[in-house]
Amino acid sequence: MRKDWQTLELCDRFFDSLERRDYDTVDACYAPEAVIWHSHDCLYQPRSENLAMLRRGGETQQKVRYRDRRIRVFEGGFVQQHRIEVTWANGFEGRMDVCFVAYVRDGMISRAYEYFDTGQVDRFLPPREVST
C-alpha cells in the first residue's frame, strides 16, 4: 500500500540533511545497492563514490540550499524539481535548476537520476583560476 507521507518525509530528510552537511543521514537515506545517475555523463555512480563526492563538495561550499522544491510522489518513488544555490568558499554564488527522480525501496533511495544543464556550469561553479 502506498504511503506517500513516508516518501515525502524521505525526500525532505535527504535534501535537508544535504543542506546541513549531515552526511551520516544522507548515507542512511540510501539503500545499500543505491546508484545515482547524472545527465552530464549518463553513468550510474556507485553509492560510496557519490557519498565521497558529496563530502568533498561540502568542504568547498560555505552554504547549500535547495530552493523552490516541487515534489510529486509516484508509485515507487518521487520526483523533486528544485534550484540548488551554493555559496562557494571563495564567495561565488552559484545556482542550477535540477530535476531529481528517485526510486525508493523499503524507505530508502535505491536509484536516482539527476538532470541538469552543464551548458550553464559557469552560473554554478566559481571561475577557475588560470595558471600562468
Binding site: 545527465s39 524539481q81 535540477v98 530535476c99 537520476y113 538532470y115 544543464d117 552543464t118 551548458g119 550553464q120
Partner: peptide, 26 residues
C-alpha cells in the same frame, strides 16, 4: 539526448511542461 520532463495535466490535456536537458550535448 537524455531528457526528463515533468508535466501537469487537467481534463485530458497537458497544462504545463518542465523540460530538463543538457545543452552541452547539443
Amino acid at each position: 539526448l537524455w531528457i526528463c520532463i515533468v508535466a501537469r495535466v487537467r481534463d485530458g490535456q497537458i497544462t504545463r511542461i518542465d523540460e530538463y536537458m543538457d545543452s552541452s550535448k547539443f
